[in-house]
């Protein structure tokens, strides 16, 4: 029964790879021999765990073929058979030739796997044994060693130049940008004192100007009278200002900078004040207090 199944399986394999069938025998024999020869120095029986692993791998190896050949139930039996064979093979050292021939199709996976594993092992050992020259680039598994080295060197130099360019750009962008020190140096202190002086001057001036109004306590009858007088005066002066201007001309009223801007006489001409700034230095000194402040502070310097 087992043989029948094997033939079936073999047929299924042969159906697929006809050209391989003929040649496949010889290598398989060779492989067997090799395997037996290889098995000699090795521990004869792989451990149970390993066997299980081999089986599993073999199954995986064959899995797509089996899917195509839709012989799932038989394949399982095949596997069991294969397992037996494996044990046999190990035990008897591959003495039964004809049996092997018949089994060839079924054992394909394992032999191949063994071969592949061995090949890989040899290749890997070879690589590991190789004495690697002490290159800064490290070992290169390429035929075009020089080319690769060149390319890498080029890349490095390119990166270097790029980094330099970037740094340069950054420097250019940051030109003039200074991070201030955490302490106040002499210059900063001087500047702060100058600014403080200016502020103090202004505040004092303001308090002087405003204390004449606020210094008087409105609750006192005497003070109240004075305040009322002041208010009256201020009111009249305010009243008189526009009336005198109004007498001169109607448009002068708008000259008072109140109301719609285009109706003003000096609309869009305000910069004329600055045009001949060098001819009338005194005229520029407007009632603007800031100027008074700045000039006085500049005099101190």
């Amino acid at each position: 029964m087992a043989t029948e199944l094997e033939t079936l399986a073999a047929a299924s394999v042969s159906r697929k790879r006809k050209p391989e069938h003929k040649t496949g025998k010889k290598p398989s024999k060779r492989v067997k021999q090799k395997a037996s020869s290889m098995a000699a120095p090795k521990p004869r029986k792989p451990s149970r765990k390993m066997r299980k692993l081999f089986r599993k791998r073999a199954r995986e190896y064959h899995s797509d073929e089996e899917e195509e050949s839709d012989e799932d139930p038989s394949s399982e039996e095949e596997e069991s058979d294969r397992d037996l064979d494996f044990v046999d093979d190990d035990g008897s050292g591959g003495s039964e030739r004809d049996d092997e021939d018949g089994r060839e199709g079924a054992q394909h996976g394992i032999t191949r796997f063994v071969e592949g594993c061995r090949a890989f092992r040899i290749a890997f050992m070879k690589i590991m044994k190789k004495h690697v020259p002490d290159d800064p680039l490290g070992p290169i598994l390429s035929a075009h060693k020089k080319l690769v080295a060149e390319k890498l060197a080029e890349e490095v130099s390119e990166n270097k130049t790029k980094a330099e360019m970037k740094k340069e750009k950054q420097m250019e962008a940051d030109k003039g940008h200074v991070k201030p020190a955490t302490f106040l140096d002499a210059r900063e202190k001087l500047l702060v004192s100058v600014a403080t002086k200016g502020v103090v001057k202004l505040f004092n001036a303001v308090s002087k100007a405003q204390s004449s109004q606020t210094g008087l306590n409105p609750s006192g009858s005497k003070n109240a009278k004075v305040m009322a007088k002041q208010r009256k005066q201020a009111f009249f002066s305010e009243l008189q200002k526009p009336t005198t201007q109004f007498c001169d001309s109607k448009s002068m009223d708008k000259n008072n900078e109140l109301g719609w801007a285009p109706l003003r006489n000096n609309y869009m001409l305000t910069s004329s004040k600055l045009k001949d700034w060098d001819k009338m230095p005194e005229a520029a000194a407007v009632v603007d207090h800031k100027q008074v402040l700045s000039e006085s502070s500049s005099d101190e310097e």
């Binding site: 200016g198 502020v199 800031k290 402040l293 700045s294 502070s297 500049s298 005099d299 101190e300 310097e301």
Partner: peptide, 12 residues
């Protein structure tokens, strides 16, 4: 506020 200092000594 603005404080200008040292400008008085220079030119136009």
């Amino acid at each position: 506020l603005i404080v200008l200092s040292g400008f008085g000594s220079g030119g136009q």
